[in-house]
Design a binder for these strands. Structure first.
Length: 123
DNA sequence: CGTGTGACCGGCG
DNA sequence: ACGCCGGCCACAC
């Protein structure tokens, strides 16, 4: 409500964009952990619009920062965005380098390695 | 300024 | 259990 005004001000003062928010969260994902689009969306307040998060990731390549997009999967732990990487296997390779196990385009023990910003960053 | 699109999610048949 | 459908918000054309 009132916060909306502040947000709008931020938009005017800085080049703040939805992408920047998403990137900021994704970058904070610890190595060996993954999160979901919905979790990020919820953390940002747009819980019902997890699509925006995914779309923001699509623009990750526009950012000069390194966005570990491989650590962001859908609620099933499936590497839905792997097709958007340079190569279809790149996402899986990156996750394996993080020490995770990927089988059939799905993160093994996904629920165990799940890193929810709404919880972890809320401590 | 209107319309379409999207790396999703939750609910319902 | 599986499949389909609507919703939701930001950004590009």
């Amino acid at each position: 409500m009132a916060e909306k005004k502040s947000i709008k001000q931020s938009y005017s003062q800085k080049e703040h964009s939805f992408f920047q928010d998403v990137f900021d969260v994704v970058i904070q994902i610890p190595k060996g952990r993954v999160t979901t689009y919905g979790a990020i969306a919820k953390f940002l307040g747009t819980k019902m619009s997890a699509r925006m998060v995914g779309w923001a990731m699509n623009a990750s390549h526009t950012s000069s920062l390194k966005i570990p997009a491989q650590r962001v999967v859908n609620r099933n732990g499936v590497l839905t965005g792997k097709s958007h990487f340079a190569t279809p296997t790149l996402m899986e390779e990156l996750l394996k380098k993080d020490g995770l196990s990927v089988k059939n385009d799905t993160v093994v023990d996904f629920k165990t390695v799940l890193w929810d910003p709404a919880i972890e960053l809320s401590l």
